[in-house]
């Protein structure tokens, strides 16, 4: 590959910690938007935030899966392999983290690993880059980590996302945890979060 690789974290120890804390805050408080600052400049269509999540959490023990848009650009996998040491796997259910640049075109949640009843932690975390991520009218959520109810607007979403999430929730404790990243921010819908029917 002739392309020079873009750099990774400026301060690997502290940048990884900051990104992790943003992800932890987001997971602990589902459907809230948490700041996620990063100065990464990865090859498009990998967004800086998707890259930050991968660099903070992936390594040779935690493989990555790339959606079609990301897989179409070889520089993306090269960048991720170089900076994380993680394997980039072909089949979604082998991945610890799935990176998705185009949520409206991604495979169904059921294509990823949901874990087993004995080891529900052996599941894929799906990280989707979205354009809109804001508190307010959109998905009305409740569940652990949410005091009363949290409303969050996320776009674009996979088609029939609500039905997929409902099916995912019925699997509990198995299931997929979803992270959503947008420029400068992150939010989570872990498997415990229930999206209330509209109305």
């Amino acid at each position: 590959m002739s392309i020079a690789l873009a750099p990774g974290f400026t301060e690997p120890v502290f940048d990884a910690q900051r990104v992790f804390r943003a992800l932890m805050d987001a997971t602990a408080r589902p459907a809230t938007v948490q700041p996620l600052a990063t100065d990464l400049v990865p090859p498009a269509p990998l967004t800086p935030e998707l890259a930050a999540v991968a660099l903070a959490l992936a390594d040779h023990e935690a493989p990555l899966w790339l959606d079609a848009a990301l897989a179409a650009v070889p520089a993306v996998a090269a960048y991720l392999r170089f900076h994380t040491g993680a394997r980039v796997v072909e089949t979604p259910d082998e991945a610890a983290f799935a990176l998705v640049a185009e949520p409206d075109a991604m495979p169904p949640l059921g294509a990823f690993a949901v874990g087993t009843d004995e080891y529900p932690d052996r599941s894929t975390t799906v990280v989707m880059a979205v354009r809109t991520l804001a508190a307010g009218r959109g998905l009305a959520c409740e569940g652990p980590g949410i005091l009363d109810r949290a409303d969050i607007a996320i776009a674009p979403l996979p088609g029939d996302f609500l039905a997929q999430r409902a099916a995912n929730r019925a699997l509990f404790p198995r299931g997929i945890d979803c992270l959503f990243v947008a420029p400068g921010s992150v939010a989570a819908l872990p498997r415990t979060t229930q999206i209330l029917p509209e109305g």
């Binding site: 990884a16 992790f20 932890m24 903070a56 023990e61 935690a62 529900p120 932690d121 498997r191």
Partner: peptide, 24 residues
């Protein structure tokens, strides 16, 4: 070391997503 922290951090995220479940 950073590799160990990543491994623990991944476990913490799973633990929060599955409240009360013991993540190895």
């Amino acid at each position: 070391d950073e590799q160990t922290k990543r491994m623990i951090r991944r476990a913490i995220l799973k633990a929060i997503a599955i409240p009360g479940y013991q993540v190895p």
